[in-house]
């Protein structure tokens, strides 16, 4: 049993230590985080642990430390949508949408560290799989959100 901060609120995870975080989160009703491969290849399960993008299908609950902050797709918006979410809407990025939570979480972690990523950095950091092929619109949305964030700063 471990207590963490999940999307800003205290949460006890009372599951086996070897259960991947993905399945513990989904049991809590946070189904925006998706199962895609189970081996940290596709990134559909990406969440943030203390702001770092992590593939939750392959990280056991036992790897968490008490008090760590976990953010899922359900928790990245404040009173308004995250600039990336808004950009994904503005540019009509999602097709089937199944990978998009993971794409957004990966992109949000990228922008929080590098508010103005160039194409090479986007290529390096955005390694999640999208079978519908929304990559070009994801890239454009990252740039739009980047402009929004850096303009505000």
């Amino acid at each position: 049993m471990i207590e963490i901060i999940l999307n800003g609120k205290k949460q006890v995870l009372d599951v086996e230590g070897d259960m991947p975080i993905l399945w513990a989160l989904r049991d809590l009703g946070l189904t925006g985080t998706k199962y895609g491969c189970g081996i940290a290849q596709c990134g559909a399960c990406t969440i943030h642990i203390d702001g770092e993008a992590v593939r939750s299908c392959s990280l056991p609950v036992s790897a968490l430390q008490a008090g760590q902050k976990i953010t899922t797709i359900e928790g990245i918006a404040g009173t308004v949508l995250h600039p990336l979410q808004q950009a994904f809407i503005d540019l009509d990025v999602p097709q089937c949408g199944y990978c998009q939570s993971g794409q957004l979480m990966a992109a949000a972690a990228l922008l929080s560290k590098n508010p103005k990523p160039d194409d090479a950095l986007i290529d390096q950091e955005m390694t999640n799989i999208c079978r519908c092929g929304t990559y070009n619109r994801i890239r454009a949305a990252i740039k739009q959100a980047s402009a929004h964030i850096t303009q505000k700063a």
């Binding site: 009703g29 199962y35 994904f88 990025v93 949408g97 957004l104």
Partner: peptide
């Protein structure tokens, strides 16, 4: 026109059959 089904896909609210409960 923009798609009708985008918003829930970027907030995690969209339910797929994988998410049915």
């Amino acid at each position: 026109l923009p798609r009708l089904d985008t918003r829930d896909k970027v907030t995690g609210a969209q339910l797929y059959s994988m998410d049915h409960t």
